[in-house]
Amino acid sequence: MFEPFLILIAATFLFAGFVKGVVGLGLPTVSMGLLAVTMPPAQALAIVIVPAIVTNIWQTFGGPYLRDILRRLWPLMLGTVIGIRLNSGMLAGPYARYGTVILGVLLVIYAIIGLRKFTFNIAPRNEKWIGGGVGVVTGMISAATGVQVIPSMPYMQSIGLEKEELFQALGVFFTVATLGLAFNLTKAGLLSGATALPGAIALVCSFAGMFTGQALRTRMHPDTFKRWFLIAMIALGIYLAGNAIYNTHLA
């Protein structure tokens, strides 16, 4: 049983890394979504956490905009850390079984927003206070599901970051959020030696998938790939939420 589990980990992170290499994000979202089919979100996040941190640190220092990003996004990042701490018991607490339902719903929302290309603009004078509120909500959702794209991603798209600056900003934000989650997992005793081997396999496969995705990025139209990826996320989200609700009623 152990070997098929490691094969599942390898295949999941090869695909999740490939998505990140092509579209610039999605490693935690894809890997959490796929792993949550076979395990609780807390266990999945314990495996996801190291590859997510390492790949996001790599993305953080992949551009020249770090100082400006920190200046503009510090309220979002601070709010996210606060939200993660406020909801720190959700993954391992008595309501942890509902995390998969929330994750499924969030995947559907995230995909629909991406498919409809819904956009709005936030005036610079409002960035900080809106960013702080968005961060708290993102942190609380992230603490329950391990996914940090809602509502942080629409917010970052709305403040006028250029393409390459947004790519680097995603790395900075996800690094901070994932470190906050790692602290929660450590306190809950979910990060242990048992996650070392799956985490190492996940890390290697994430980079292999990411470099493959980057190599194919010039040959593949990212918008076409992203559209089919988002459609698949809707199907996966519906399955996860529906299956979790069904199992909860049986319990």
Rank of each mutant, 00 (worst) to 15 (best):
A200W: 12
A200V: 08
A200Y: 05
I201F: 11
I201M: 06
I201S: 01
I201K: 01
I201L: 07
I201E: 02
A202H: 00
A202F: 02
L203W: 03
L203N: 03
L203H: 04
V204T: 11
V204Q: 04
V204K: 04
V204F: 10
V204W: 01
V204C: 01
V204N: 01
V204L: 11
C205I: 02
C205M: 13
C205E: 00
C205T: 04
C205K: 00
S206E: 05
S206N: 04
F207L: 04
F207E: 03
F207C: 08
G209Y: 00
G209T: 05
M210L: 11
M210C: 04
F211Y: 15
F211H: 11
T212E: 05
T212G: 15
T212H: 02
T212D: 05
T212C: 13
T212V: 05
T212S: 15
G213P: 01
G213T: 03
G213K: 02
Q214H: 09
Q214P: 03
Q214N: 09
Q214Y: 06
Q214W: 08
Q214D: 08
A215K: 13
A215W: 15
A215F: 13
A215R: 14
A215L: 15
A215M: 14
L216D: 04
L216N: 06
L216C: 12
R217N: 07
R217M: 07
R217H: 12
R217T: 07
R219I: 06
R219W: 15
R219V: 10
R219P: 05
R219M: 13
M220A: 09
M220T: 12
M220Y: 13
H221W: 05
P222D: 11
P222K: 10
P222H: 13
P222S: 09
P222E: 14
P222M: 05
D223Q: 14
D223T: 14
D223E: 13
T224G: 13
T224Y: 13
T224Q: 05
T224D: 08
T224C: 10
T224R: 14
F225K: 07
K226P: 05
K226F: 08
K226W: 08
R227G: 02
R227T: 12
R227N: 07
W228I: 08
W228H: 10
W228K: 06
W228G: 03
W228T: 06
W228L: 10
F229H: 07
F229V: 01
F229K: 01
F229Q: 03
L230E: 12
L230Y: 13
L230I: 08
L230M: 14
L230R: 12
L230N: 15
I231D: 02
I231G: 06
I231Y: 11
I231F: 10
A232P: 00
A232W: 14
A232D: 02
A232N: 15
A232K: 07
A232Q: 06
A232Y: 12
A232E: 04
A232T: 09
A232F: 11
M233F: 08
M233P: 09
